[in-house]
Write a protein that binds this DNA or RNA. Sequence first.
DNA 1: ATAGGGTTAG
Length: 455
Amino acid sequence: MLLPLPRARCLSLLGLCSNIKQVKQIHAQLITNSLLRQLSAVAKLIERYFVVDNGESCARLIFEQHAGSSDLISNVMLRYSHPEEALTLFSDQIRRGLVMRDCFAYTYVLKSCTQLNALREGMQVHGRIVKSGFASDIVVGTTVIHFYASCKGIRSAHRVFDEMTTRNVVTWNALMIGCCLNDSAEEALVLFKEMLQHGLASTDRTAIALLSACSQLCNLVLGFMVHAYICKTIARHQDCVFIGTGLVDMYCKCGCLMSALRVFDGMTEKNVLTWSAMILGLAIHGKGEAALAQLYEMEKEGLTPNAVTFTGLLSACCHNGLIEEGLYLFDAIKSRFGIEPCMQHYGCIVDLLGRAGMVKEAYEFVRRMPIEPDAIVWRALLGACRIHKHEKLGEEIGKNLLHLEKKSTLAINNCEDYIALSNIYASAERWEDVSTLRQQMKKSAANNRSGRSAV
DNA sequence: ATAGGGTTAG
């Protein structure tokens, strides 16, 4: 039997509850002491139900009894609900003419939009932010930048950034990371220099953006400089798993496996992302066996591989002709690890079989895929047809691929595909077809991009 | 009560 507790004690105990049973006990106390007339207490109760396991339905029940009564309560719902539900709730509130008196709702809803990759919805939220006058708030503005940058709206992110009157390092980081996400590493570096000129100090997240830019540019010299800069400026960088993973990735992508391994071995904490980056690094450096061995090492440390880890492992098999191992692993993805194979996994297997000369098997594999193969899968198969002189199949696939890309707006590699098909014709000495294809390629020249080298 | 993070096949 619990004695009635004073309000302050009740609320401080609520904050300590770690399971639903405890929250329910405090909930009862709040009721018997008539403390739920206070809307701030209701909001705290809802929040706590969300935080503990299986408390969601209770949280929603309480919310429904208080719906529309205060911003505090609806904001806590927007913050903790699943992104889809948060958007629904937000639009309900708009429809019922409820006004957001503070800016919290906007940041929570925009975060949901970011998680859902919902560009349209987020733009509408942004519109409301501008109308409400909260756009000048530094936190709201930074959230908007992060939203646009994550949802492929980097130009809008730039515009919002340029229009902001006050910015801090979080604002700069958001835009720099956005540039990296949008393949604009050079732009990220320019921003970094500007940020330093404004007298702002880097944080760990700045470091991660810089490393990502180095990886993208395959610039080892710059990578070394960034590494030195991190050691000098970021406190406790050795303990930061994000920075460690970024360093491993950077050294792998810049071709310095030794340095990657040195960083990796020296890390005090590693997670599944760290291991995945290292495995992929070993894979692209031709160390297939070593990459596969890492799977057992990481499991020994109690870590479970995820879909990305398997992409690295299959890529290792692919680069090193480990056919049996690759097929075995592919099977294990679902049967042993319960992960549904995705496009990258299928792509690796097609490449693996194709390179080994098992073109028919690769084609069968593609036809049996439960998801619609993408252009990269077809391209791997086409490459195999060319190497192993499967003229007829290659021709069919090449034509399909060009057709597929004509329909799609993302025909980035169109030019290469013309050349790949043309090579098939060339190795069969079908010069007439080669020349016809070249003409067609010239006609669709709008899709061509000139070659570039990072060296 | 408010913002930001790292690894995917060729």
